[in-house]
Design a protein around this nucleic acid. Structure first.
Lengths: 167, 167
DNA sequence: AGGTATTGTTTAAAACTTGAACCACTAGGA
DNA sequence: TCCTAGTGGTTCAAGTTTTAAACAATACCT
């Protein structure tokens, strides 16, 4: 296969992306770390749980929506559980599965952190973008995600990804 | 200060971004790790050096363009130096500064890795984007970067960032 | 000279990631 | 029932990376 290279415009876009992504992750992580003592990934775990029905999610499903390994998730949830923000629960129908449940304290922490986080995202990102650009960003990122995930039609759940594979 | 929340459209864009960025970093890192044994950051160090005049850059300048701390860079360059891909050199005019130089072996490794990396970026990103979207992406990321970096007019070098601050 | 800012490294501690091994359980036959 | 394969989740050990603070050396300014 002959190699396909990036065009100059693509080069520029790619570099701009790398710089922005790196800076952004840094900024968000730092703010969240300062305000809540946890990195962005852990905040995301809490956020996912908070939006799930009944604030609970199977470990595997959670790992899947966050696109991380189960091992990594176990590590994170253990930490969050030690801090009392999340609780583990067994499952009646399948005793193998564990369910992560957002505790009241976890909810409180999340609600306390949310404003600062939102503010940070606003100033870092959206204050600089026109409404058209917001739409463009969503469109572009969606295309990238679909591309990486291999065009699997079942994976295009867009909104709420917590459907059991086998009900 | 009253909290500013993300609008629904901004919400969607932000989540799309988080998902795409996370997936993308994972994909790129994994491919680079497999093919070259180093993570993306280290590849970027080599890439930056390879494009600098004379393949050499001051540590601080390098850290600045890569948006990472000097400490982090020192760590990375040490590893790359141990692998023989980069060499450190002193500076006559200012004995404090160290200059990282891409070795011939480093150049070779980079040239060997570049096609696979380019291919990966193409399939993961640009194969899915229209030419307009490429431009939009650059524009958006540039805006974000400028926003985070605090509108410093001197920081808008856009193209080749390796200008000494003084001299 | 003396004080201050820069450059870059070091250090120790902590956080994180990975991969493999592992246990417990479920499911599907024979 | 028993056996086997597969799943869900955790644990473990090892390695990598990150951070923050402290440090040494040099430069700059008055």
């Amino acid at each position: 296969m002959t190699t396909r290279w990036l065009s100059p415009a693509e080069q520029r876009a790619w570099r701009a992306y790398i710089a922005a992504a790196s800076l952004l992750e840094d900024t968000i992580d730092r703010q969240l770390q300062a305000e809540t003592g946890m990195p962005h990934l852990y905040y995301s775990i809490l956020a996912m749980l908070s939006e799930a029905p009944d604030r609970r999610l199977r470990m595997t499903d959670l790992a899947e929506t966050l696109k991380i390994t189960r091992s990594r998730l176990t590590y994170g949830v253990t930490r969050l559980a030690n801090d009392g923000l999340v609780r583990r629960e067994g499952c009646h129908s399948d005793k193998r599965t564990q369910i992560a449940v957002l505790t009241d304290e976890g909810t409180a922490v999340l609600e306390r952190a949310a404003p600062g986080h939102a503010e940070q995202v606003m100033t870092a990102v959206f204050d600089r973008l026109t409404p058209e650009q917001v739409g463009q960003l969503e469109e572009i990122c969606g295309a990238i995600t679909r591309g990486i995930q291999g065009e699997d039609p079942a994976a295009c759940g867009e909104d709420l990804p917590w459907r059991r594979r086998s009900s």
